[in-house]
Simulated scan of single mutants.
Amino acid sequence: MTHALPAALLGAACLLAGQSATASTVYGIDFPAGDISFADRVASFTPGFGFGGGVAPCTDASNALGVASAGPDSSLGECNGYVSLGEGGMLTLQFTDNLLIPSGDSTNDLQVFAGGDHDEHFMVWIGIGDSADTWFKLSGAEGDIFYGGSTGIDIDSAEGVLPGMKFSYVAIYDLPRYCNPETGLMEWSVGEACGVDIAHLPYDGPWAGVDIYGVGAITTVPAPIPLPAAGLMLASALGGLVALRRRRG
């Protein structure tokens, strides 16, 4: 009987600490915290336009949530497991049950699973605070513009990111193509000439822009349990203790 209360409190503490994570590997990328690592909520989405006009039809942003399920070889136009941002589209995702944190070294902390029929140019920010009050632009080996495909990012290298920071949001912006009159070439594209017949351009039609099929925090911690929920857990544990004492009384 003398050990019942400490045991109950220990059980409650274990509940508050959250469930133990099971590591997983997704498309060759290791996520030590498992499925909890992936974005859970679409905070906002503003689709861009399809090259040559129109809006990309693959605009179900929920396809970017959870464990990445569509690969870079997904059939174009089937919208199975990815969202097309469109030219100039903006997608903001939120982690709700976990938080992205810097690792303190040069390894990748964030993985953006991106695809497309050819290299797509995009930029990435991470946001801190309940309402993403502050944003930090991320960069890679070639600067702050990423070139499509599954992209790992070291957030420690971003200006202003410090040890101990915890991030809830990831924003992805597709750089729209435009004609550079000085060079006569399309910028943020694969280098085709301006004004050429669209039939001779690399096809992306209405599925323009980078295709996102998952965003995962490689370096992460569980999100804190709200106080009301924590109190209910503790009350439940203590209630079980009272019932145990009555049975043994």
Score class of each variant (00 low, 15 high):
166 K>I: 00
175 L>W: 00
175 L>V: 05
135 W>K: 07
40 D>H: 15
199 A>C: 04
151 T>W: 07
137 K>G: 07
215 V>C: 08
217 A>N: 06
196 V>K: 09
214 G>D: 02
158 A>W: 03
115 G>P: 05
21 A>Q: 13
147 Y>I: 04
122 F>E: 02
112 V>Y: 05
89 G>I: 01
74 S>H: 09
88 G>R: 06
69 S>A: 15
130 D>Q: 14
129 G>M: 09
241 L>G: 00
225 I>V: 15
146 F>D: 02
193 A>Y: 14
84 S>H: 04
207 W>K: 02
177 R>H: 11
179 C>E: 06
72 P>C: 07
68 A>V: 03
179 C>G: 07
73 D>P: 02
23 A>N: 08
228 P>V: 11
230 A>N: 12
95 F>R: 04
131 S>Q: 14
78 E>W: 06
119 D>L: 08
192 E>W: 13
220 T>G: 06
74 S>N: 09
114 A>D: 08
142 E>V: 13
132 A>L: 05
24 S>D: 07
155 I>N: 01
30 D>F: 01
224 P>C: 05
75 S>T: 14
245 R>L: 11
19 Q>A: 15
242 V>P: 02
83 V>C: 05
15 L>Q: 12
91 L>I: 10
60 D>M: 07
211 D>N: 14
68 A>H: 01
100 L>F: 05
150 S>F: 06
155 I>G: 00
26 V>L: 08
75 S>R: 13
125 W>I: 01
194 C>F: 11
36 I>R: 15
129 G>S: 10
229 A>M: 13
13 A>C: 13
236 S>H: 04
135 W>M: 10
136 F>S: 06
35 D>C: 03
16 L>M: 15
85 L>W: 04
74 S>V: 14
135 W>S: 11
89 G>A: 05
52 G>N: 11
